[in-house]
Design a protein around this nucleic acid. Sequence first.
DNA 1: TCTGGGGTCCTAGGACCC
DNA 2: TCTGGGGTCCTAGGACCC
Length: 422
Amino acid sequence: MSNAIALLDCNNFYASCERVFDARLKEKPVVVLSNNDGCVIARSDEAKAIGVTMGSPLFKVLDLLETHDAEIFSSNYALYGDMSLRVMNLLHNFTPEVEIYSIDEAFLNLEPRKNSLDNLAHSIREKMYKWTGIPVSIGIAETKVLAKIANKRAKKGELREKGVLNLYRSDKTEPILKETLVQDVWGIGYRSTLKLKANNILTAWQLREMDNRFARRLLTVVGARIALELRGIKCLPFEQVQTKKHSITCSRSFGQTVTNYIQIKEAILYFLTRACEKMRKHNLAANAITVFISTDRFRPVPEPYTNSATYSSTYPTDSNQEIQEWTIKTLERIYKKGFDYRKAGIILSGLVPNENLTTRMFDDEKFQQQHKLMKAIDEINQKFGKDTVRFGSVKTEASWKMKQTRKSQSYTTNWNEILTVS
DNA sequence: TCTGGGGTCCTAGGACCC
DNA sequence: TCTGGGGTCCTAGGACCC
């Protein structure tokens, strides 16, 4: 018998994290904002109930939130990352086969012993709440795509209280697929929905029943796989080992528009510093960098301009100095005078392990020295705080800095901000 | 005034080789 | 330069996810 797949999803994860450490927030609407305090990216049930929608710009819902005495937070990724780690680690107490899919979701590969799936799911849910304070929902089915649907359903209506729905070999699957709209199927986005609707395919059940060659022609192999998964045929592999990173991005919308080259360059080099730190933390080196800049998406001045360019090198490196040179060359190719820029970023790609990098034909000694220097700088900054040591060309305070005026404390990751009990 | 950021996978098309 | 099929590798762009 083929294994059952369970999807565990933390309810309203960021909002729930904030709640764990602040008793005041119980039964109050809570929302968490994106970077720059721009959009709502997480909502407690109470916030959903008063009509705050996912992704709404804060300025559009601020009145509503204040009327209902809601609590508003800037995102605190250190806190959420740490809470995620706790949840994921605990899962291994229940089953060895865990695939961490995102910060708040994991797939479990379960042997379908009779009547035990439901019990196991309920037990995970209860213990997870007791141990971490995070409420979770669990959906179970034959495949990942079906488990996603079961999970979504487990959060709805009467099932919400129980938080578990098991569709593995269940006769409830068919009626549920008939009620599920095609745009609510995992992997079917806006574009695919339009194509499916044009062909009169509106429900998950109709997608399941599609001729597979037609599905492939309309939606490529991606869509064809989803259709098969809906039939209970596993097409998406269960991946326990974390696959290696392929790219590292750092980008921001600016607090205000930036016009001059010097400031754009400062911002870009700041992003580069952050991305390189992350890269070395994962023991990686890059051989390519992409730089992109863009005018305001909503109010472009004088007209829309977005551009990007990539620099590829023969040798991968993990040295800031070297990548900085690539970056500046690349930025010069796309920067145009006379535009008000609102967003910029960089992507490091061609990532390889940074141990035993190929010996260079020229300047190898210089490169090895830089490699060691970077290691030393990272260690100092780790110990004494971000940017204690930095390159002279990299500024830390500037007009493009992020707005974050509503951040909670780093309860779990910073000794100075640990929870106080009185 | 105010509208996020970080990823992956797939495909088509170009460059190049035999 | 043309004639031809078959193959790989790379990149830009599209689509989707959390």
